[in-house]
Design a protein around this nucleic acid. Structure first.
Lengths: 205, 205
DNA sequence: GCAAATTTTGACCGGATGGACAAACGTTAT
DNA sequence: ATAACGTTTGTCCATCCGGTCAAAATTTGC
């Protein structure tokens, strides 16, 4: 537990905020300490006074990120109506993609490169959380509350579809064009995903 | 049209293959010419004889990639049964994620960083292709062959779910664990996605 | 107000990296 | 065989970048 002065607390926060911006758009290797320092409004040696190495900033950022990231899944529980529970999980994840796109991209960057720094977390904390929630979903399937399918791949598909709107944002906006690519795109996505996950594409007649 | 000798054709191909490997795991900035040269089994100056700049390699790779990438969507047409047509599009995309994960990651990397080198392609060629196919899908909806929903977001969700198995492969494998994370994961995914996109999660009773 | 502790800065270092270049080596066509 | 052309290599350079350091400036505790 390093004791921190007021200035240290403030400046470290400032640096982490700047680093999130820079890392999430250029990746770890693509970002320079100078860039981060400038974004944080300080000189490079000054920044290095607060974080001794570039990697320390990244590690700290990842540490925090993972907790935020798992939060919505932790909330998934057995008490409500299963379909409603899943719908609100999808909604929460989509809101995170909308409100924290930089965090999503930082995470995506790390996974894309093979997750060298967080692999143990994936195999440990993440896996056991997913296994636990998959168990709950399986219970819902057994009791006939939702259709029988693979709970793990269901979770993957929710992650994939929602994070897509953060990670592939530029592509989404490019394809939708100026008229449909505005802020409304998240509501359109929410409506679409709800329908997809509940009813699929088969026509009702 | 630069005229090429036999050796040039071969060596350029060798370099592009090596560069795909390196770029897709370390990103553009994270990769060095030396790394690519070594992977291609030649010296750095030798590599630079075939591609004058590192960026030229990347550009060439992107150029080709985009054509491969759009091919499955181009095949989507109006002649077959709509649901079958969409299912086989999903299957083709999933096969690409399985067989060409490096291409998928290279593409994801580029988009994540804001697509600086291919933005015009996204706004031009990609957008018009998607718009065209969205039109076909809308036709299917109007004639009641599939449920009414947003065709653009439908296409996004197919991209997201299938490419997830290439881009987030390490996470998928970490979560599934050693037993379920083997080669069979793509068949499980195929079964799951088929059910999701056709029937959704609502139970039939 | 002042000494001690903390923060900020400019200058600097060493290694990595993208790229240039000329000379050496190989291939090919006549 | 040899001249012209294509290929490969060793050497070198300039820049960038992560990180150090000591000195200067500022804040804090008494």
């Amino acid at each position: 537990m390093p004791r921190r002065t007021r200035i240290q607390t403030e400046k470290r926060e400032l640096i982490l905020e700047a680093a999130l911006e820079v890392f999430s758009t250029h990746g770890f290797r693509g970002s320079t300490i100078d860039q981060i320092a400038e974004a944080a409004g300080m000189s490079k040696p000054n920044l290095l006074y607060y974080f001794r190495r570039k990697e320390d900033i990244h590690e700290q950022l990842m540490q925090r990120l993972l907790q935020t990231w798992l939060a919505p899944l932790r909330e998934l529980d057995d008490i409500g109506d299963p379909l409603t529970e899943l719908r609100s999980y999808i909604r929460r994840k989509l809101e995170m993609a909308r409100d924290f796109p930089r965090e999503s991209r930082l995470f995506a960057n790390e996974i894309l490169q093979g997750a060298p720094r967080i692999m143990s977390m994936l195999e440990g904390e993440l896996k056991s959380l997913v296994d636990e929630k998959a168990g709950i979903i399986q219970g819902w399937m057994r009791s006939g509350k939702i259709a029988r399918t693979d709970p793990w791949h269901l979770i993957f598909s929710i992650w994939a579809t929602t994070q897509h709107y953060a990670d592939f944002d530029v592509q989404v906006r490019a394809v939708l064009g100026p008229d449909r690519g505005g802020e409304g795109r998240f509501e359109d996505a929410a409506r679409f995903l709800e329908q997809l996950f509940v009813d699929g594409l088969k026509p009702k007649h």
